[in-house]
């Protein structure tokens, strides 16, 4: 698969400048530290593979429905091209992957979004796969973990993408009735249609330091109210202070936190 990024100069692939403190960091060091800056704690955005590696037990990931492909219900200008580009860039068919896995030896259903795929936007494929992940968790009685990062609904699928918000949330209603736990992990950035549906509906919501989380985009808010937003607005710590997420943990503690919570909520099922 052709990859435009393979042509990046070697020097750039070895070193990375920190967006937090400006320090030049050796990429290998960054990788061994969960893509977090050693000096200032800045959390670099990472992709689905990294989250799978960080949260799931080794070699336990078994992906499902990776082959679902978006249609073009509105015949929206340049949407097929945009999809093609995104597929080439990410090597994925759409912005959400899910499957079975183990987390701290607990069988779970795990799902993760890819912000690199059209901004992690939710169209029919994301909506369908999230709904299937939720249903699988209910049918197999496995706790559900979803790492969500998204700019919202996919404009190119118009009203169809808006309806995915209702679709995923309704399925979560059934999961809740079935008393299967759902841990939502919205990470940087997670806003709009995804935050206003499944990413906000976790029984427990965990996020990472400084992640941007919220409903409206910052520019939209600034344009509406006619003033600059205060520093830290809509960041994970702001969400924590306002009672909207349960816990903000550094990435290196993410898995441990998930396992601790599940080992309590799922205690009865484990000891069967």
């Amino acid at each position: 698969m052709p990859d435009s990024e393979s042509r990046v100069k070697p020097a750039d692939t070895l070193w990375q400048r920190c967006n937090g403190c400006g320090e030049i960091i050796y990429r290998k060091t960054l990788e061994s530290n969960f893509h977090v800056c050693n000096r200032c704690g800045y959390h670099f955005r990472i992709g689905p593979e990294e989250y799978i590696r960080i949260i799931l037990d080794e070699n336990s990931w078994e992906e499902l429905d990776a082959d679902l492909i978006a249609g073009d219900p509105l015949r929206f200008p340049k949407y097929p091209e945009k999809l093609r580009e995104a597929r080439q860039k990410t090597g994925r068919n759409d912005a959400f992957s899910y499957g079975r896995g183990m987390c701290g030896r607990i069988p779970v259903v795990f799902g993760v979004m890819d912000f690199g795929f059209i901004g992690g936007s939710m169209g029919s494929v994301v909506g369908e796969k999230v709904a299937r992940a939720i249903r699988l968790a209910r049918k197999e009685s496995r706790p559900l973990i979803i790492v969500a990062t998204s700019g919202g609904a996919r404009m190119q699928e118009g009203i169809i993408s808006l309806m995915q918000m209702a679709k995923t949330s309704a399925e979560l209603g059934l999961l809740r009735q079935a008393r299967v736990p759902y841990i939502a992990i919205p990470v940087d950035p997670c806003t709009a249609g995804v935050m206003a549906s499944f990413a906000s509906l976790g029984d427990v919501i965990i996020s990472e330091p400084n992640a941007l989380l919220g409903f409206a985009g910052q520019r939209v808010i600034e344009d509406t109210i006619g003033e600059k937003l205060p520093p830290g607005f809509q960041r994970a710590e702001f969400m924590l202070r306002h009672g909207l997420v349960d816990v903000v943990v550094p990435r290196r503690n993410l898995k441990e936190t998930v396992v601790r919570i599940l080992s309590v909520l799922w205690y009865r099922h484990q000891s069967l």
Binding site: A166, A170, L172, L201, A216, I221, F233, F238, G243
Partner: peptide, 25 residues
């Protein structure tokens, strides 16, 4: 839904999401 500071502080996204889930049931 209103895009403003108070709306975000009080959980605009959560309020919408919860309605979607609860109305379904």
């Amino acid at each position: 839904a209103y895009p403003g500071i108070g709306a975000e502080e009080r959980g605009q996204a959560e309020a919408i999401a919860r309605n979607l889930r609860e109305m379904a049931l």
